[in-house]
Design a protein around this nucleic acid. Sequence first.
RNA 1: GCCGAAGUGGCGGAAUUGGCAGACGCACACGACUCAAAAUCGUGCGCCCUCCGGGCAUGUGGGUUCAACUCCCACCUUCGGCACCA
Length: 826
Amino acid sequence: MVTNYNPAEIEEKWQQKWAEDDSFRSEIDHDKTKYYVLEMFPYPSGKLHMGHMRVYSIGDVLARFLRMRGFNVIHPMGWDAFGLPAENAAIDHRVNPAIWTEQNIEHMKKQQNRLGVSYDWSREVNTSAPDYYRWSQWLFLLMYKRGLAYKKQASVNWCETCETVLANEQVEKGLCWRCSSVVETRDLEQWFLRITEYAERLLYDLDKLEDWPERVKTMQHNWIGRSEGAEIAFKVKEIPEEEVRTFTTRPDTLFGVTSMVLAPEHPLVKKLVEGTEREKDVMDFVARVRKESEIERTADEAPKIGLFTGRHVVNPINGEEIPVLVGNYVLMGYGTGAVMGVPAHDQRDFEFAKKHKLPIRIVIQPEGEELDEHTITEAYTGEGVMVNSGSFNGLNNTEGMKKVTEYLKEKGLGDFRVTFRLRDWLISRQRYWGAPIPIVYCDKCGTVPVPETDLPVKLPHDVELSGNRVPGLAHYEEFVKATCPVCGEPARRETDTMDTFICSSWYFFRYASPHSQIAPFEKDDVDYWMPVDQYIGGIEHAVLHLLYARFFTKVLFDAGMTRAEEPFSRLLAQGMVYKDGAKMSKSKGNVVTPDEIVERYGADTGRLFILFAAPPEKDLDWNDQGVEGSHRFLRRVWRLVVECREQFATGKGNADHGEKEAELERVLHATIRKVTHDIEKRFNFNTAISAIMELVNAIYNYRLSVEEVKQNNSLLKETLVKTILLLAPFAPHLAEGAWNLLGYKESVHKQSWPEFDTVKLVVDEVEIVVQINGKVRGRMVVPVDFNEDDLAEAARENERISELIEGREVVKIIAVKGRLVNIVVR
RNA sequence: GCCGAAGUGGCGGAAUUGGCAGACGCACACGACUCAAAAUCGUGCGCCCUCCGGGCAUGUGGGUUCAACUCCCACCUUCGGCACCA
């Protein structure tokens, strides 16, 4: 006889069966509603950690649940396989990155399968496979053709440890996102994607993403950083053909400008001081500032230093001469790299002016106050009336912003302008293990894109592994040598590879069309499957991957390749997994691996615990004893199935349907309702599981409180069967095993999700709480259809209550049907 | 500084629409079974008191309401993001 719950045995058995039956393959079916469930694909580092287990568990519950609900579910998995760790491993182990990656994928895939996750492996993608990166390159060319990929000389982020440049999004507080080294600045010619062209849409379409967490949207909102203002041209007094353009959000303060400060990188700086006595001082200062890392330059305690250039600009609104300085706090990458200083109305300008003894002039007066430029101790940034502003005097400053800009526009000296904090996406990487940028340089024809028919531009296969790093592509002569596609003359290949975030910006499209040989993906496929209905992943990608993927999707939309304007309809940002209040890490010695858990308790226990311990979006504290509890529950379920099966076989029992049966039935239907709602509407798997636990407890209670020969076996069986169905998404192996044990041949995962019957939820009597002045003073059981008046009367008649209100004046009685009665007395 | 999220027993968490605070689970205690242990089952379990019964409790202080974890105001703390952004 089958007895104990043996996860090792049943999990392997059913995993094999599912694989043999190809159970989770999905095909286009226009008669069914599709549902795209996607977890962020992993970097194949070699082993799964608890964060992976969590994200896959969440995704798998949804996928399995939605299949049972009748959706045509697509649930794919793949590998974000390019990236630096493969190169480091290559050197450490003297093994080709491709082979290392391949081995890791193989291993991790086994681990995923051991978790029982229901993936359609026929759609698996590997971004490092030529068959995939060919299309990453194709998409680069698409960007190039659409004017969205370009090369420029720029001052860029450089990580010395990774020996490559980084995009702005990949620098966190001045440190490299991957290795936390200090990021330096270098001047290099690099490839960029014009994401700023999409800034406005990336920002406004956030509003369409109703089912995204607010915090992620806020982060993107801040990152894009839109501000409205004016761009204003100031002529250089000493060199009339030159002008300084400045961006300001406060054109209403233009009459208060007393300095013009340029970024050290500003192209005009050199010209302004060239051949003057100040040239050396200024250029030394510029050189010194530019050597500083972003950390040093933006540190809180970094003093604001400015150096006079000896030159002046002319304020276009009143012809005043204003000194031009170079300042270490002005950033070339924002606005125009030049700031007009209005000390009276900008705190930073105020401090700067105090330090450099620049004049302060008040041009906005707050209502009912009289600010004095000699006595103010801080800038006034609020609203007010314009003063000292010529013909604009007396205007409200908000009005003034518009009026001043309009005036300048008429004169051709300025215009309205919107500026973004977001900068173009630097995608060149000076590394081997990435998709080569498909560009050829020809002496005659210049920069030439590789024709689509010549793709992929393959990575050199025989990697040089003798040194202390994998050499970049420039090292491989055979790779560099090329023929110009235009003129046929010898040419050189671009030797940088693309940022791996390019590869992960479109993989969800490829899943829909994984084997296409004619395009990155085919329209029929993506028109059916896209967008992703539910995306699940870590919050750390709030501005990186999630912003890039949105950008790519919009470009693909504009190119007519998809109808999806946004890639991910719903986003679930899952919390992190902690243990003992700290992130799991080797150094803290608090790591628990999915392997250990599967080994010890089985995958079902691990999945159940991870979903039960906290709602998915919250951080989760791993608790070994909690895992025991989940395991105990599954054993309890298994034992129940085994015992009931034996009981059913005896043929004993009867068909009575008394109070206890009605109660069991009611609990069953209430549970179906709750579990369905919790998964579908709230993503609260923890409460769904607790409801199933209560149902199991109710079955045990029924069996305990009714003699075996008197138990209603048909009801018991129905309840048990439905319990197994409810549990199937959470503990798929146990459910399949139990289902089989109960005599069913077809997979539990092919069954329909149970429906609840509202009729079965109806009760005859309910317990009503009776409060006096808001405090619970008694309870009474009344017929369920008692209305407010009946309730009030019943409460008054209640023995205990009537004693308590005896001799007191009843001011008011509030009765809520089915819930409570509150008697207000004096 | 700005923006966002959150604060509930010893612990993880629940309370879905303003209506019994603490579901479910963990830990703990006691009991049953056992020679014993494990497993399993049962009972109890916010804090306090004079323990029939009552008082106090959802970060703090106010407010609205018959009724507040839930709504409003102010504040405190924690976490996350952005930050010399002109």
